[in-house]
Design a protein around this nucleic acid. Structure first.
Lengths: 135, 135
DNA sequence: GATAATTTGTACGTATGTATA
DNA sequence: TTATACATACGTACAAATTAT
């Protein structure tokens, strides 16, 4: 379970895979801090660029959140609430751009669910908080 | 419409905003090549790191695709086909991780739509190709 | 077919800024 | 205040894939 510097798989991807495993196996549970970038650098013998790129992969997958001054943490996943939608509705999903993300205050890696009701109205929901139930 | 080096907004974000505007206004239409990283560097007086980060933002939003040896291009958006789902189905959306993306052969920035039918079966669709219609 | 030029990808190092504890 | 941690941004070098010559 370590980094192979001679592998064809990029170093950052190997590290991302390692960390993802530790998150999905709950060895790094919800809310837990990841080791700092400096620590990961030393631990695995990588430069900081590779470490940051690995973490950015996890961030874009919605698995972790980073903010200045604090350690990167495993992103707590809110319980999804069920939203009921009417027959005849159309549902689509997309990735919000940075401005939309700011407005909706959602984390990186969280898609947007869009529901177009039969009457033409459109509703949007962050996909980590909402699941849709077709009546 | 240029880069302000004294702004509080990061340079890469300013460039991402500029390029996003040019894509969404169709000045850079579907399939069109973006200027090369070297060209953007010169054009806007930025280092390559800032340029690459800007493009990575657009890639994660599903707006462009990059591959080695070829210019980064505006990602052609396939026409969505409508998939009908049964009443009682539950719909959710999520960002696939890198391995899932490889398996489903979807681009970065394309969420996955997941449908759990009343009989318990689960179907997954790339959200750029499929929209769901609730019967 | 072989070479060269172009373009993106990976990875290193360094420096400075900013938010948090 | 100090130390820690992440964010931004510069530079360099080489690898790998594609395209043009």
């Amino acid at each position: 379970m370590s980094i192979d510097h001679r592998s064809h798989t990029p170093l950052y991807m190997q590290l991302a895979d390692l960390l993802r495993d530790r998150i999905e196996s709950d060895e790094l549970p919800s809310g837990a801090p990841l080791p700092s970038e400096a620590r990961l650098s030393q631990e695995y013998g990588l430069g900081r660029v590779a470490v940051r790129k690995a973490i950015s992969v996890l961030r874009s997958e919605g698995l972790v959140t980073s903010s200045r001054g604090q350690p990167t943490r495993v992103r707590p996943r809110p319980k999804q609430r069920l939203v009921e939608i009417l027959p005849g509705s159309t549902i689509s999903a997309r990735t919000p751009n940075s401005n939309e993300r700011r407005q909706m205050d959602t984390a990186e890696g969280v898609p947007i669910l869009e529901v177009r009701s039969p009457d033409g109205t459109v509703q949007t929901f962050p996909a980590d908080e909402v699941a849709l139930s077709c009546l």
